[in-house]
Amino acid sequence: MASLKDIKRKVGAVQKTKQITRAMNMVAASKFKASQLRMENFRPYASKFMDVLNSLALRVESMSHPLLAVRDPRRIRVICMTSDRGLCGGFNTNLIKSTERFLKDKTKEDKEISLINVGRKGRDFFRKKANIIGQWVDVLSKFDMTLAVSISNDVIVPFIKEEYDELYLVYNQFVNVSVQRPTVVRLFPLPSIGQDVDIDPDKRLDYLYEPSEEALLQKLLPMYVHVLVYRALLETSAGENGARMAAMDNATNNCEELIRSLTLKMNKARQAAITAELMDIVGGTEALSKG
């Protein structure tokens, strides 16, 4: 049995761990709140943007844009969006796993694959395993639309130059605080827009377009990519902090559990020591009186 002193030291250590996990939980909670607020602030922009894009797409008869070009998907590029920091439960692990599965499937189909990593964790994992051609590391703690724009431009230009044929984005879709779902979406060629939307014809305003509808659409499509990437970034950031909150909450609870069982053990050990000492004394006096 471990000595009393050892157990005492252990209890102290666990207590310190608990303090840290609790603090991390609170930090994650406040960061989570901030990212949730940003998601809410983004919503009007995204929904207005989609409205205009859809109504524009409906008016343009046939859309042709390099970003919509469907080619034989031989060379595939994948963006894997993880967090920069760990200690957030299965957040990154799950995402990396589904990325790996996706890559494996595509490799089986004899595709040529290149990978872009957003976030340190994914980069570290794939460093020696895949053909990484781009990385964005240590950017997620503080980012704005410019980050989404630079990431997007990094993929738009090579796609237009036909350096690759299809682009997929793997990210954690934010469902709620405790649920993040790894999702694979195809970015390029952009899925057709405005086909499955029903806009009330009465509500559709007849605008004057300047420049023409087509030219305007050409301008809006890259912005659409920015919106998609930015949304994924926001969801990643919110999901990461949500996952960390849950993980740290669990860790704190586990610490409490551990402290409880260790305290019990410590009390038992102390009691055992007292009993042993008493036995000694009793034995001693008995021996004396007999003598």
Partner: peptide, 19 residues
């Protein structure tokens, strides 16, 4: 600052959309 040049808007402007 529109792409086709700067333009001013007052109330009652014709409905239009521009980049």
């Amino acid at each position: 600052p529109g792409t086709e040049g700067e333009f001013g808007v007052l109330r009652g402007h014709e409905a239009f959309l521009t980049s």
